[in-house]
Design a protein around this nucleic acid. Sequence first.
DNA 1: CGGTATCCTGCACGATACTG
DNA 2: CAGTATCGTGCAGGATACCG
Lengths: 139, 139
Amino acid sequence: MEDGTSEEPGSCAVTDDDPFQWDARQNCEVRQILDRIADKWSLLVIALLERRTMRFTELKKEIDGVSQRMLTVTLRQLERDGLVHRYVHATVPPRVDYSLTDLGCTLHDTIKPLVAWTETYQEQIISARAAYDRAVATG
Amino acid sequence: MEDGTSEEPGSCAVTDDDPFQWDARQNCEVRQILDRIADKWSLLVIALLERRTMRFTELKKEIDGVSQRMLTVTLRQLERDGLVHRYVHATVPPRVDYSLTDLGCTLHDTIKPLVAWTETYQEQIISARAAYDRAVATG
DNA sequence: CGGTATCCTGCACGATACTG
DNA sequence: CAGTATCGTGCAGGATACCG
């Protein structure tokens, strides 16, 4: 496995007088977890699994563009973090079902507003970009 | 500038009968925006600027670990997306102030619960990882 | 079917040097 | 001070091949 799994026990004690002290530290647990959430595929997997249990191949087909390798890696990370449950049926050919854990569900609920925000303001962002690009082009 | 600025007008029309149709598409605006949010430094910059206007050097000092280049790139992206405002004082030596736009503020408000979630469940995630690693080691 | 193991490549990013 | 421009490189991640 290539994944360095760099862990360094949380060097982030968070002096709690400031709720955003987290931002300045590296190897902060919060940052590690946000990185997972930030991951290109994780969100998609979580969103899909929130609806129903899915098999590996179903996920792969649904998340068009993901390589088999990256889907595997993503699912392993999510499983390791306790966000996704993996059930291997003892059949042949093998069948593996993935589903969200309770923790994964709470995360999904937390993410929903973020997706909603994005949908609400995407037009605004697009026009902001256009305006910026125009300004730059003009000089 | 190295940044490809790959734009492709939103090939994501989002058939709205399914709020999570967004997940399957690439070059979806939602995904592009999430990628920005997901960015390693963007969140930190937004969190810092939500508190007060800051100068370039202040940000650089505060976000320990960021290179000058990456801070510049990050700020430019955020400015282009209309999340951050950049004000250049006509003085010498130059002085540049960064602050959140209204849009940036709404984004920060939306992100807060996510950070809170992370802080709430980080212990649970850490122990989930430990359990997973133990299981793997055991075989 | 649901993975691993291996190789290879692009580009994200750091380091460094220069500038208005 | 607040950037740009240029070069070098590590590693994330795709492509491919093989396996229980």
